[in-house]
């Protein structure tokens, strides 16, 4: 347990602070994609309110794909991954900690930014609360599922586009339920059901993904 905290958690946090620009870029990308929509579609407040939740979620998924590879890419190429696997720490636990750090450094800033985005797209307070809840429940799911795909593709050179092709279809259910929750909020309807489904998907991913990631990494080492 101590090894996981001292050896993996602290390491990845230190690395994230050392490579701040790599973290800031996907966030800037997200911000820019979102600003493109009012420019392209027209700044009508009702139009923006209608498309807002979908735009934020799609931009979040696309920008997450840019940062996703970071989880294991460097570790694979510089050999740190081999050393993790021989460390005696369970690989699934290592994967879990790395996903946690990835979520903290790439999606938590997004949550901090989101009030600004909500203003941009003319979301009501109800919609913003719903959006925030779906982001909090949904983005860890992006990290967990994304890490499985990264584990599988990390050994391939230029796996970036393949990663996107693998992951985008998998994220469709999340997108549907998340935007539907925000739409319900816009109409003052309850949206607990959608949140519950996203939460269920998250719990399932939390239980299964670390083992799937560990297996994928082992396959990539072979």
């Amino acid at each position: 347990m101590n090894g996981l905290y001292q050896g993996i958690f602290k390491r990845d946090i230190a690395l994230a602070f050392r490579q701040r620009s790599e973290l800031a870029q996907p966030l800037m990308f997200l911000l820019m994609v979102i600003t493109l929509f009012p420019l392209g579609i027209g700044p009508g407040p009702m139009t923006l309110q209608k498309i807002g939740p979908g735009v934020i979620w799609i931009a979040a998924i696309l920008s997450s794909l840019l940062a996703m590879e970071r989880i294991f890419r460097d570790d694979f190429w510089d050999g740190s991954l081999e050393q993790y696997m021989l460390s005696g720490l369970p690989v699934s636990a290592i994967a879990g900690v790395k996903v946690l750090v990835h979520w903290l450094v790439s999606f938590l800033p997004l949550a901090l930014f989101s009030p600004l985005l909500a203003l941009f797209l003319n979301l009501t307070v109800d919609m913003y609360v719903a959006l925030m809840l779906t982001l909090v429940l949904g983005t860890p799911l992006l990290s967990l599922v994304g890490a499985i795909a990264v584990g599988l593709t990390v050994g391939l050179q230029r796996g970036g586009v393949l990663l996107a092709l693998l992951l985008i279809p998998v994220f469709i259910p999340l997108l549907i339920f998340a935007t539907s929750a925000v739409d319900s909020a816009a109409l003052q309807l309850p949206y607990r059901a959608q949140l519950a489904i996203i939460g269920a998907m998250l719990l399932l991913a939390m239980a299964a993904a670390p083992f799937a990631i560990a297996y994928a990494l082992k396959v990539s080492q072979n």
């Binding site: 101590n2 090894g3 001292q6 050896g7 993996i8 602290k10 390491r11 230190a14 690395l15 050392r18 490579q19 460097d74 570790d75 190429w77 510089d78 050999g79 740190s80 081999e82 050393q83 993790y84 021989l86 460390s87 005696g88 720490l89």
Partner: peptide, 21 residues
């Protein structure tokens, strides 16, 4: 492969490696 992260210093690399192992 050396198993060292280029952005970390030698001391940091070794400290984290020792903690893992």
């Amino acid at each position: 492969k050396a198993g060292l992260n280029g952005a970390l210093t030698a001391m940091e690399n070794l400290r984290f490696w020792c903690a893992q192992h």
